[in-house]
Amino acid sequence: MTKPIQILIVEDNMVIGTNLSMQLNELGFEVCGLLPRGEDVLSCIRNERPDILLLDIQLKGKLDGIETARLVQSEFDIPIIYLTSNADEAHFRRAKETKPRAFISKPYKNIDLKRAIELTVEAISNNARPEATIENHYVLTDRVFVRKQDKLMAVAIKDIRYLEADRNYCRIFAVEKEYLLVGTLKSLEEKLPRANFMRVHRSYIINVSQIDEVGNNHVSVGGKIIPVNKIAKFELLRRLQTL
């Protein structure tokens, strides 16, 4: 089953934000968060990265929507759709510098919201260019070779923190860098050394030696909270005792 598009809403009017969330759910999208302040956005994205950021330009607090977008773009490449009730030239010029995918004027129509998101999703799909690919013979016992353009780059097994499913791709989160790989999480699970890696959730494989904390139903790896299912939790504790 295809994972629904994850959308993070940043809107300081909670009535508008809640209605927007309900509309998006009805359209088949999944809202992964509703935040009222720009100051909270970056930490939220670090914990759970959305596919699209739906951002009100006029936020209360120290950061308006445009400044929030710039802050996010300093770390992440996430498509932005602006919501605005003020379409004056000054705001438009500032917002345009952040290269948003669309502007939606308030009060917005349901069809405008749907079309803006669908066009953004289509643009993401058309412009997707994986940073690296991986094949069987590129996985060794102590490192993984990933292809980037015309080069093979070595990523030490010990430096890989976790892998996350991303539709038809997988993301490797290493100590210093992130890599996008072609292939399913299951195919990569079969190639990685079992002594180091363990599937703890349908969307995550972790490097057991990189665990910082074990909770009741999660682990923390490099500051990322990763869910752990009950069956995996029992096996994980057993393996930790043997390290």
Rank of each mutant, 00 (worst) to 15 (best):
M1W: 02
M1L: 06
T2G: 03
K3D: 12
I5G: 00
Q6D: 14
I7Q: 01
L8G: 02
D12I: 00
M14F: 07
I16Y: 09
T18W: 07
S21W: 02
F29I: 00
F29V: 01
E30N: 14
E30T: 12
V31A: 01
V31P: 03
C32M: 05
P36H: 06
P36S: 13
P36I: 01
G38T: 09
D40A: 10
L42E: 03
S43R: 08
S43A: 15
N47Q: 15
D51R: 02
L53K: 04
L55A: 09
Q58N: 15
K60E: 15
K60A: 13
G61L: 03
K62V: 14
G65L: 07
G65T: 08
E67F: 04
T68P: 05
L71D: 09
Q73C: 06
S74G: 09
E75Q: 13
E75V: 06
I78V: 07
P79N: 02
P79T: 03
P79C: 01
I80C: 05
I81H: 02
Y82S: 01
Y82T: 03
Y82H: 05
N86F: 14
A90F: 07
H91T: 12
F92A: 08
F92H: 09
R94K: 11
E97M: 12
T98C: 07
P100I: 01
R101Y: 06
S105L: 07
S105M: 06
Y108Q: 01
Y108S: 01
N110R: 03
K114M: 04
R115G: 00
A116L: 00
I117A: 00
A123L: 06
I124L: 04
S125G: 01
N126W: 00
N126T: 04
N127M: 02
N127F: 00
A128T: 10
A132R: 10
A132V: 05
I134H: 03
E135S: 10
H137P: 00
T141F: 08
F145W: 12
R147T: 14
Q149D: 14
K151R: 15
L152H: 10
L152K: 08
M153N: 13
V155Q: 09
A156Q: 11
I157T: 10
I157P: 02
K158H: 11
D159Q: 08
R167D: 15
I172H: 07
I172S: 02
I172C: 03
F173L: 09
V175M: 04
V175H: 07
E176L: 06
E176M: 05
K177L: 05
K177R: 15
E178I: 06
E178M: 12
L180F: 12
V182G: 00
S187M: 10
S187K: 12
L188I: 13
K191W: 08
K191C: 11
K191P: 08
K191F: 13
L192I: 10
L192C: 07
M198Y: 14
I206S: 09
N207I: 03
V208E: 15
Q210M: 11
I211M: 05
I211Q: 07
E213A: 03
V214I: 15
N216S: 15
V219W: 12
K224A: 14
I225D: 14
I226C: 11
I226D: 07
I226F: 05
P227Q: 13
V228W: 13
K230A: 15
I231L: 13
A232E: 10
K233M: 15
F234Q: 13
E235V: 10
L236P: 11
R238M: 13
R239K: 13
